[in-house]
Each structure stands twice: as C-alpha cells, then as structure tokens.
Amino acid sequence: MPRLSRTRRGRTNASRHQDPAGAAESADGTEPDARFTLANERTFLAWSRTALALVIAGLAIVQLLPPFPGVPWGRHIIGTPLILLGSAVAVISYLEWTGNQRALRRGEPMARSRLPGILAVTIAIIGLVAAALALVSGGTGN
C-alpha cells in the first residue's frame, strides 16, 4: 500500500535508489529516501521565505507608505493582516513539515497542504480592502 501511494505520486524512479541498508526500521516507520526528506525541507524553507516576505511587506506598508488622506488607520488595516498572515504561514508550514515527514516515514499519503488556500483567500481579501481604501481616501492628497 505505501508503495502504491508513491507510485500514484510518480515517485517510482526515486524509490529505486532507496538503500535497504540505510533504511533504519523503527517504531515510527522507516527512514524515507533522503530526497523526500530534503524536498520536504526545501518546501518548508520556501514557505518560510514567503512568510518573511509577507512580514516585510506589511511592515513596509505601515512604516514607509504615506498616510491615506482621511483614513488615519488605512495603512494598519492593510499592513497588520499581512504581518499576521506571515506569522500564520511560518507556524503552519512547520506543522505541515512535521506532518509530511511523519507521512513519509510511515508510507502514508501526504495530507493536502492548506497553505495555498489560506494564502490566496487572505491576499484576495487584503487586495479588496486595499482597493476600497484607495477609492475612499480619494487621491494622493497633494
């Protein structure tokens, strides 16, 4: 069954390289092919950079953007959700890394990542709020 799930994910080539001598059996499954572990690690690192970029973007909006005329909290309304989203992505990506690593060790199918959905929905909402803010604040105030 584990082999079947890997086949469905197109990883038959990779399992050929699995070294039986290096595969340490333990109570919590088998040590997976190093490439799966490393790919999981890269995915986590990529999400971490995304989280860091979201925090930087939120901070830049609040600290560098000129205030919206007539909407004193306008910058905070956009910036704070971005920073919170960055924080959430950092935590969730670590939890998903842990879950994926456990699934790899046990040969179970991996759970589908929730991060793309969270990221898309939150950024869409922030975009709509930013558009509304740009319309309401009315011009650059020059």
């Binding site: 690192l45 860091l52 920073i83 919170l84 924080s87």
Partner: peptide, 23 residues
C-alpha cells in the same frame, strides 16, 4: 533536522511578532 527547522519557524514568528508590536 527538526531542531534546525524549528529555529527558522521560531525566527520568522519572532520577527513577525516584533513587526506586529512595532505597527
């Protein structure tokens, strides 16, 4: 490996909490 990746997660979360406090 878990400890090294936890360091990244903690660092990013710490930075975002500091940014939140600043804003």
């Amino acid at each position: 490996r878990p400890r090294r990746l936890l360091l990244i997660a903690v660092a990013v979360t710490g930075v975002s909490l500091a940014a939140l406090a600043l804003t």
